[in-house]
Every structure is written in structure tokens, then in C-alpha cells.
Computed example of a mutant assay.
Amino acid sequence: MITYHNATLEDLPFIVDVYNSTIASRQVTADTVPVSVESRLEWFYQHNPQNRPLWLIKYQDQPCGWISLSSFYGRPAFYKTVEISLYLDQDFRGKKIGQFMVDKIEQFAKQAGIEAIFSYVFRHNLPSVNLFKKMQYQQWGLLPKIAELDNVQRDLVILGKRLD
């Protein structure tokens, strides 16, 4: 029912569309206007199947979202720490796809030698906060009123999990 594969360049327009679909809610991303496929090329190429995957997710053979692990801070001492990102098309939310995929990418991360995963989440994004808490992520940090979306100051929480 839920499958995934390493994303290809041909998948990037879909990945960008799903990402852009979350902007209007002002809950998921700090971007306030849609991004272009071209602007996401460097980000795309920062991923690799060995230890920084970008997976296209399918539900009943339909593309429904993506999940990735990205390097943190670009310094060698943080090599075993990654940031997780998960974006699902709104029509596929609430089907436990997120839980399934977080579990799968955690299994992958352990095998790849990753020791810690974290996510930056707006505190008012309760679906994401609840997902990560359900998956045993803990609050590692709080950045109060760090973002402003439509004249409203928003908190950013850092949710993390040790894999060792």
C-alpha cells in the first residue's frame, strides 16, 4: 500500500508542488511564496542514496509526498546528525503514511550510521508536532517568536531523537 524509492530528477517537479502546496497554510514552512524547481536543484543534489536520502512516497501506487534526511550545519563533527523533512499532499494526510515513513527512514538511518535525527517544526503545526511526539521525538529546543508569518510571530521547536 505504501511504497517509496530514491527520488529522481523527474520527480522533482512533484516534490516542489507538494512543498509549495503547504505554503498557504503558514504552518509548515517559512517560505511565503512558491519556490521553483530550478531553485531546488542544489538541494536535490545534496541528497544521496547512501546516507542522505530523498525518497518519493507512493500510496496505492500514486505519488503522495516525500521524505528526506539532510546534513546538519555542514561541519564534520555533525556527520552522524541529520534533519528529517516530511511533506505529504493534503489528500493523503491522516492515513498513517507519515508514521510508516518516519519509521522506515529511521531504520535506514541506523544502518547508515546516523545517530541522531531532528526536525524544525513550527509550534502551531500540531499535526507535525504530534506525529514526531508519537514517534518518540523529544523537544530539544525552542526558538520563541523567531518567525513572522502574516504579521504573527511564531515559535519554532526542535524535535529530536537519538537512534543509538
Rank of each mutant, 00 (worst) to 15 (best):
P49K: 10
G94A: 07
P53I: 05
Y59I: 10
G98V: 01
Y79K: 15
Q60E: 14
I67Y: 00
Q46G: 15
S70K: 11
F78D: 09
A77S: 15
T81L: 01
R93M: 04
Y79A: 14
P76W: 01
S71K: 12
K96D: 04
K95F: 07
R40C: 09
C64L: 03
Q60I: 02
C64V: 04
S68F: 02
R93P: 06
I84D: 01
S85P: 03
Y79I: 14
R40V: 14
E42Y: 13
T81A: 08
K95M: 11
T81R: 07
R93A: 05
I67F: 02
W66K: 05
F78S: 14
L69A: 06
R75V: 07
P76T: 13
Q90P: 13
F78Q: 11
E38D: 15
P76Q: 04
Q46E: 08
S36L: 11
W43P: 12
L86T: 08
S68Q: 06
A77W: 15
Y87E: 01
V35L: 06
P76G: 02
D91H: 14
Q90W: 11
Y87F: 06
D61K: 15
C64P: 05
Y45K: 15
D91N: 14
S36P: 06
F44D: 03
F72T: 11
Q99M: 11
F78H: 13
F44Y: 11
